Amino acid sequence: MKKSNMAMGIICTLNIILFIYAASAKLLDFYNFQFSLSESPFIAPFAGILAWAVPAIELIIAVMLVIPGLRLAGLYASFILMSLFTVYITAMLLFTSDIPCSCGGVLEEMSWGTHILFNCVFVALSAWGIYLLRKKRRMLPILPALA
């Protein structure tokens, strides 16, 4: 197995585990997740919809990362979602004094600095996966029958 294929497998597996775990933790403790969202000064008006949308999006991304034809879209979605989470946490730290955590599970136990670092690692992993997959696709002939 080529190193880039192995790296892609590791990147996708880590993201799949993260998103399935995070979505499951939120859904298993749905009331507290929704309550935490409603306590956020930035997203409180959207807490009801976000409480369902965030875990659904996380699960959809995990499925996209499993399906080879959707993997690139899944990596882009992972990159965007983790970037948004990171910006949200940073904004909360900069502009509010009381910061509710709605992450769920073990992620809820991290300090905010650790959480930002954790998110940045996953943003970087997704970016690396995008790079590897786009590089691999550029090497493939566009019309294999003519190659």
Score class of each variant (00 low, 15 high):
Trp128Pro: 00
Tyr31Thr: 13
Phe95Lys: 12
Leu133Cys: 03
Phe33Glu: 03
Ser40Asn: 15
His115Lys: 09
Ser38Thr: 07
Ala147His: 10
Leu28Cys: 12
Ile11Ser: 02
Ile116Gln: 09
Ala145Leu: 12
Ser83Cys: 08
Ala44Met: 11
Ile142Trp: 13
Val66His: 07
Ile99Val: 10
Val87Gln: 04
Gln34Glu: 13
Leu125Ile: 01
Thr13Glu: 10
Glu39Cys: 10
Ile99Glu: 07
Ala56Trp: 10
Glu58Thr: 05
Ala7Gln: 09
Thr13Asn: 07
Pro144Tyr: 06
Val106Leu: 14
Ala62Leu: 04
Ile80Arg: 05
Phe19His: 11
Leu27Pro: 02
Ile80Gln: 08
Pro141Cys: 13
Lys3Trp: 09
Lys3Cys: 07
Asp98Ala: 12
Val106Ala: 10
Leu132Met: 03
Tyr31Gly: 00
Thr96Leu: 03
Arg71Tyr: 01
Ile130Ala: 01
Trp52Cys: 04
Gly74Cys: 03
Leu72His: 05
Gly129Ile: 03
Ala7Cys: 03
Leu93His: 03
Thr13Leu: 14
Glu109Ile: 06
Phe42Leu: 14
Cys120Gln: 14
Ser40Cys: 03
Met82Asp: 05
Ser102Pro: 01
Gly129Asp: 01
Ala44Tyr: 10
Gln34Gly: 02
Ala56Val: 10
Leu37Tyr: 08
Ser126Arg: 09
Ile49Pro: 00
Leu50Asp: 03
Arg138Lys: 15
Val66Lys: 12
Ala56Gly: 11
Ala56Glu: 03
Gly69Asn: 11
Arg134Glu: 11
Leu70Pro: 05
Ala62Met: 08
Val87Met: 09
Leu18His: 06
Lys135Ala: 03
Val121Met: 09
Leu50Ala: 05
Arg71Asn: 06
Glu109Tyr: 07
Ala147Asp: 13
Leu72Met: 05
Ile67Leu: 15
Ala124Ser: 11
Ile17Tyr: 13
Met6His: 10
Pro100Trp: 07
Glu108Asn: 15
Ile80Gly: 02
Met1Pro: 09
Ala124Ile: 04
Leu18Asp: 04
Gly74Ser: 05
Ser4Phe: 09
Leu75Met: 07
Ala53Met: 10
Phe33Arg: 08
Phe95Pro: 00
Ile142Ser: 14
Asn5Thr: 12
Thr96Phe: 04
Met110Ser: 00
Ser111Gly: 08
Glu39Tyr: 05
Ser40Met: 11
Trp112Val: 00
Tyr31Ala: 11
Ala147Glu: 13
Ile49His: 08
Val123Arg: 08
Thr13Gly: 10
Ser36Glu: 13
Lys135Arg: 14
Phe33His: 15
Ser78His: 07
Val66Ser: 14
Ile57Ala: 13
Leu27Gly: 01
Asn32Gln: 15
Phe95Ser: 08
Phe19Gln: 11
Leu143Gly: 05
Phe46Thr: 08
Val123His: 02
Cys120Thr: 11
Tyr131Glu: 04
Ala23His: 03
